[in-house]
Design a protein around this nucleic acid. Structure first.
Lengths: 334, 334
DNA sequence: CTGAAAGCGCTTACAG
DNA sequence: CTGAAAGCGCTTACAG
């Protein structure tokens, strides 16, 4: 089952490889009609399909990009990847998916492998643990775009949510309904995981703006695995909150689990609002008010930015930050 | 910013390209210690990393596979892809992701592009619309594994759920709780979409086994967009069902939407059970009884099968079908 | 309008 | 123990 190559086509058509190559690359400027027809016929007869690896070697482009996410199981990643894939498909590019699991070593391995495979560009949700590598990439002017997390001191364009705004919207929605004992539940803080940090900052600023004194014990960062206990302790405070903001979708689930186990009523006994829309928001009882991020648009933007970079390879002066607007989806949980 | 090649390393180390190549490929059998050290040093000094595209051209292996799913936004795809990616990562392989959106033309384009890019194998949830192409692939002995859907007349190993068993488990759970007016809601049937077909067959067989007469009007296949109306009509029957099986997770959402809008109580007024576990099953009130499929294990199996095929390229005699066991997760909705 | 030749960056028999 | 040469399957100046 020997593969048919351009040489076979050339021979079959009675022309040179060069001419077949011209044909393949649509350089018809000076090509005789008959030559064209003969090549066409030969390609069909032999069922020839060009070997893109060989082409890539010569042209120094693989028409493939790499996408490194934290974990493809997260809903956000899923939307982002789908958007990227759609843009790539329009350009006849392909995308290699990698899960870094927030482990810098895994991320490093993937970045190095992707580069060795000569991908034309990379979109990543960076772990933050490989600053030297990131810097090397920009030094080499390799096309790369970051998403969701801001890595300070590295000049790479980044697409992310206006996280502070997301918290503002959440706080505002709550305040409008008359709540003022507002808690914020989050996983442990990690300086590299921008969304949590910024959302908590935004929460603090929003409270201030609404002249609500900050109650530190209403901010509960804890591991997901211990979140039931942490929420429990907070609810035992002499002055427990009457509203909770979940910093992201995984936390929301924890909050809802707690509320369910305690048989509390939403929103009468406790109002709940989540940052990140969730697929079950509408069917939940009561339906859940959330602050959605335009994940699809963000993925699209990242892909478009990357294509710009891949097209005009001149070094861009400075890293841009692209903030996307969150949107309040008012439902019944507050 | 010229890329450093094996020639540069050879020169720096004062040896030939061949020797460097031996080094890279761990053929140390006869290599002098000094030579080794010099090459090592040169590689470090020049920050050399081999161009895998060039290697692929020569070795006829790209250490990359393609995965074509219907849509990465589906939870099932997400699990499958994650499992495949993990297996690939162990082998230092990469995976290119494609969304065929159930469109045979898209699928065709992807398969052809992946082959042109010389991927070493493909795992696909086939649309069913490209039988000639599939057949061509097996004729050429190209490593490929199908998932989730059975394409008749094509000798390709397929990994899927024991769908009939899934329905059996659902019916059985319902019957045990005393329900006998059991409906089955499904999207439109499509002979290429195996799960729906088999689950409905399983449902019919299970009823028979439990000696429950089949009520055709309890089987409601309709577009997701019209499902509210279809369910409504069914519930208006003189003898409406008191239990509903949702054929998959997207249908479950429709059923729950209907139930919520009608303010019916689960399970008192209507029992509900879904095939496919859903992330919100536990936090829903009441929690939702589901039949889960081991998506992760299935993806793993598909990947392992593909690696076997890629390793020993001898033609396998006949296509195998690998059925995975669904599992009832009993909760409170029936 | 078309072809011969060189080259992309590797690997691999083979020679010595 | 190491190197020269050929080759993987393309593309691309360049010559004619």
């Amino acid at each position: 089952m020997k593969k048919v190559t351009i040489a076979d086509v050339a021979q079959h058509a009675g022309v040179s490889k060069s001419t077949v190559s011209q044909y393949l690359n649509q350089r018809f400027d000076y090509m005789g009609e008959q030559t064209k027809a003969r090549i066409e016929e030969a390609i069909a007869a032999l069922e020839y399909s060009p070997n893109i690896v060989a082409r890539s070697l010569k042209q120094k482009s693989t028409t493939t990009i790499g996408v490194i996410v934290a974990n493809i199981l997260h809903v956000f990643s899923t939307h982002v990847i789908r958007a990227i894939e759609d843009v790539c498909n329009e350009h006849n590019f392909h995308v290699i998916i990698c899960n870094a699991d927030d482990q810098p070593e895994k991320e490093k391995k993937y970045i190095e492998m992707l580069r060795a495979k000569q991908v034309d560009g990379i979109i990543a949700v960076p772990t933050g643990g490989n600053v030297a590598l990131y810097q090397d990439l920009v030094k080499k002017n390799f096309p790369i775009v970051f998403m969701d997390r801001l890595i300070h001191g590295v000049e790479i364009d980044t697409v992310l949510l206006d996280n502070e705004k997301a918290s503002f919207l959440a706080v505002e929605a709550l305040v409008k309904q008359g709540y003022s004992q507002i808690a914020m539940i989050s996983p442990f803080l990690d300086p590299n995981i921008t969304p949590r940090e910024e959302r908590i900052n935004g929460y603090k600023k929003a409270l201030e703006q609404h002249q609500i004194p900050l109650e530190e014990r209403y901010i509960v960062p804890s591991a997901i695995s211990e979140m039931q206990e942490s929420i429990g302790r907070m609810m035992q405070l002499p002055n427990p909150p009457n509203a909770i903001i979940a910093v992201n979708d995984r936390v929301l689930k924890q909050v809802l689990t707690y509320v369910k186990n305690q048989q509390m009523r939403i929103p009468e006994e406790i109002a709940v609002i989540g940052i990140d829309d969730v697929p079950y928001a509408d069917i939940f009882s009561p339906s859940l008010t959330t602050v959605a991020q335009p994940a699809f648009k963000m993925g699209e933007k990242a892909a478009n930015l990357l294509f710009e970079k891949m097209q005009n390879k001149e070094r861009s002066n400075q890293a841009q930050i692209y903030r996307f607007e969150p949107e309040l989806i008012a439902r019944e949980s507050c």
